[in-house]
Nucleic acid binder design. Structure first.
Lengths: 155, 155
DNA sequence: GACAGATAGCTGTATTGTACAGGTAAATCA
DNA sequence: TGATTTACCTGTACAATACAGCTATCTGTC
């Protein structure tokens, strides 16, 4: 029993290490490709467009809640995105205070382009992996995110 | 063959999605716990201490290279950490230009505390997971990071 | 050994992404 | 109807980062 508990703690420590490392690498990658050609879409704009595309047009508040960001942050993000023609603001017909944010065709097109580029990137990075391992990684990451998200919501 | 290629592209898309989501969640978690009690160690300080503890005292440049950060960024980080008593600067005996950054006992202690807290957090989040799944997650994340890192270095 | 170029680190400045506080207008509730 | 809440925006501040430019030192070449 002692050994099992130990092994488990070691595994948790490894997961902690690897997640921290992944975050660092991910940010470095984003920064590096951000300044270069791929300045098409900064990170926040990408996740906002992903969310709008997946869950449909919605209010700033709904977006902020989903993205775990302050409303003011999202306001400024969507302002910038509107300036760039990526989203459109329309008054919410059901609530005079609200404005509905919808992706524009140009926004969707750019999001798709970034997504395709990223997918290609992963294809490149994981070129040597077996399909099974790729599947496992996708599954486990999905479950990890579910677990993280449910905990975030719960708190 | 058509189906296989398709399946694979879907998997890559899922991995892209999940990594993006994990980054977003991770940042949200960091921000949330950053303002609260856990203001013990901001992110950069933690990774710097992790690295110093693992690889030994070293120069600002070496740190910057390892962390994929600009030297000036690391300079400021270590300045703040020195102010907080987490690291010490000593002149490099082998190179008059350099200063060697070493963790202080207080820095190591705080790093260990944060690490333990994070490990506990993962234990909490993954409470329902089987040991096998945890192992798989740790392994696959490790391999993903290796792949990412070797690509970053190669570029 | 002297000088040219490279390197280590620091400082100034700008940018980006974020939060919090405060304001206004609209909605909701008692 | 009046009080409270909500949605959004704006002002302000802060943290993390990069780039440019600076000085001190090192390294190689002649």
């Amino acid at each position: 029993m002692r050994d099992d508990a130990n092994t488990d703690e070691v595994t948790l420590g490894r997961i902690e290490t690897e997640v921290a490392l992944l975050m660092r690498l991910g940010e470095a990658t984003r920064r590096a490709s951000g300044t270069a050609e791929h300045r098409v879409l900064d990170r926040a704009a990408y996740v906002i467009l992903r969310h709008l595309a997946g869950a449909g047009p919605q209010n700033v508040s709904a977006l902020a809640a989903k993205l775990n960001l302050d409303g003011s942050t999202v306001t400024r993000q969507v302002s910038a995105m509107q300036r760039d023609g990526l989203i459109a603001r329309t008054p919410d017909p059901a609530d005079g205070r609200g404005t509905v944010i919808s992706p524009t065709p140009a926004g969707l097109q750019r999001m798709a382009a970034v997504r395709a580029a990223r997918t290609r990137l992963y294809g490149d990075i994981l070129a040597a992996w077996s399909p099974d391992d790729r599947e496992s990684l996708a599954d486990l990451l999905h479950r990890l995110n579910e677990a993280l998200e449910s905990r975030t919501r719960r708190r």
